[in-house]
Simulated assay, not measured.
Amino acid sequence: MSPATDRHPKVRVLGQDLRVAVRPGTEPGPPLLLCNGIGASLDVLQPFVDAVDRRIEVVRFDVPGVGGSPAPPAPYSFPMLAALVRRMMAALGHDRYDVLGISWGGGLAQQIAVQQPRRCRRLVLAATGTGSLMVPARPSVLRKMVTPRRYRDPEFARENAAELYGGSLREDPELVGRLLNAPERLGSSRGYLYQLLAGAGWSSLPALPLIRQPTLILAGSDDPIIPLVNARIMAALLPRATLHVYDDGHLGLITRAADLGPLVSEFLLAD
């Protein structure tokens, strides 16, 4: 098997089946664990994975109830999911790793950094904020975020791409269909609800000064879901943070993967 070929193991931890994709790296070192946004399967981040330096192993997974991971019988919290992720990474043979989280997954990434300070080496936060204590999006954007319809209804996704995602999707709303609306990327409505519940009332804001890992913050200049001011607040409170603002919207990690993949790689490979 070529080092560039993804492996797709099924991992069972704490009674939960998880769909996982692993792109082996060409050199030893901590892998990069990717935590995706709400309702998004691991497939969505493929353009970014392709742009990450081949020396770095990349691990992706579908959270319970999304993509190929069945929904659990009951809701979960971010601390519970962080514990599940630790077991998953241990099952894959990793006791130390870097973590990148985008949007909702950025909340999980921050929880992992706090909860697993000896396992999480470096942290990348993309298009994300601090949870319930943050500068929110406009009410019209929030109303459309509480439903998985943007994943299930391509016409709805196209009509609202500009308002929801900003950036390059303002000029090319058709792109959202290619990025988000493939049938194999859908999860259950219950899974989406559980993700919403996991973030309800959760905030990383009081814990940010305790996150000692080197942190790269990636934020779009035109992100309707996570206004840019949130990234600036996080950069001010995180002790070892670097802020990079890119000229795009909420999905910039994908639409600008050719630029951001090498940037993240450089950050992870630095001595």
Rank of each mutant, 00 (worst) to 15 (best):
S2P: 09
S2M: 07
S2L: 06
A4F: 02
R7I: 00
H8R: 07
V11Y: 11
V13I: 06
A21H: 03
R23P: 07
R23W: 02
P24V: 04
G25W: 02
T26W: 00
E27P: 00
E27I: 00
P28T: 06
P31R: 06
L32M: 08
C35F: 03
G37C: 11
G39C: 03
A40G: 13
A40T: 14
L45A: 12
P47H: 10
P47M: 13
F48C: 11
V49E: 08
V52M: 07
R54Q: 12
P64A: 04
V66H: 05
S69T: 04
A71L: 06
A71R: 13
P72D: 02
P75W: 09
P75G: 08
P75Y: 11
Y76S: 03
L81P: 02
L81Q: 15
L84V: 02
A90F: 02
A90T: 12
L92W: 02
R96F: 10
Y97P: 02
D98L: 04
D98H: 15
V99P: 05
S103N: 10
S103T: 03
W104H: 14
W104V: 01
W104N: 03
G105I: 12
G105N: 08
L108C: 04
A109L: 01
A109P: 00
V114E: 01
Q115I: 03
Q116V: 00
Q116H: 15
R119I: 00
R119H: 13
C120W: 07
L125G: 08
A126D: 07
A127P: 00
G129S: 15
S132H: 11
M134Q: 15
M134R: 15
S140H: 01
V141R: 05
L142S: 10
M145H: 05
V146G: 11
V146S: 14
T147K: 04
R150S: 09
R150P: 05
D153I: 07
P154V: 05
A157H: 06
A157S: 06
E163R: 01
L164K: 09
G166P: 11
G167C: 06
S168P: 01
S168T: 14
L169R: 02
E171T: 13
P173K: 09
P173T: 02
P173L: 10
P173G: 07
P173I: 00
R178L: 12
L180V: 14
A182S: 11
L186R: 14
L186P: 01
L186A: 12
S189E: 15
R190V: 09
Y192W: 09
L193S: 10
L193P: 00
Y194E: 13
W202Q: 05
W202H: 14
S204E: 10
P206R: 09
A207I: 03
L208T: 11
P209R: 04
P209C: 11
P209M: 05
P209F: 10
L210N: 13
R212W: 00
T215E: 11
L216F: 04
P224D: 05
L228W: 03
L228K: 14
L237C: 08
L238T: 13
R240F: 08
L243Q: 14
D247Q: 15
D248E: 09
D248M: 13
G249K: 07
H250S: 08
L253G: 05
A257I: 05
A258N: 12
A258G: 09
P262S: 11
P262I: 09
L263Y: 01
V264T: 14
V264C: 14
V264A: 14
V264G: 10
L269N: 03
